[in-house]
Simulated scan of single mutants.
Amino acid sequence: ARVVRSEGGFIWACKNYDGDVMSDMVSTAFGSLAMMTSVLVSPDGNYEYEAAHGTVTRHYYRYLKGESTSTNPMATIFAWTGALAKRGELDGNEALVKFAKTLEEACLDTLASGVMTKDLCGLAEGVETKPVDSLEFIRAIRANLEAKLA
Score class of each variant (00 low, 15 high):
93 N>C: 06
80 W>S: 09
100 A>H: 11
89 E>Y: 07
68 S>R: 14
88 G>R: 03
73 P>W: 02
96 L>F: 12
98 K>V: 10
74 M>F: 02
64 L>A: 15
85 A>C: 03
68 S>Q: 15
71 T>L: 10
96 L>H: 08
89 E>G: 11
86 K>W: 01
99 F>M: 09
81 T>C: 09
62 R>H: 09
82 G>P: 03
75 A>C: 14
86 K>I: 02
80 W>M: 15
78 F>S: 01
79 A>D: 05
71 T>H: 01
71 T>P: 00
62 R>Q: 13
69 T>M: 06
89 E>L: 13
95 A>L: 01
98 K>Y: 01
85 A>T: 07
79 A>S: 12
97 V>S: 03
83 A>I: 02
82 G>D: 10
99 F>I: 08
72 N>D: 08
82 G>L: 08
65 K>I: 03
64 L>R: 15
75 A>H: 01
92 G>M: 14
96 L>P: 06
87 R>K: 13
67 E>M: 05
98 K>S: 06
92 G>N: 13
70 S>D: 11
76 T>S: 14
97 V>G: 00
73 P>E: 09
87 R>C: 04
62 R>K: 14
100 A>L: 11
68 S>L: 14
93 N>R: 12
90 L>R: 08
79 A>Q: 00
88 G>H: 05
84 L>V: 02
83 A>E: 04
76 T>K: 02
62 R>L: 12
90 L>A: 14
72 N>V: 12
86 K>F: 00
78 F>W: 01
70 S>E: 08
87 R>V: 07
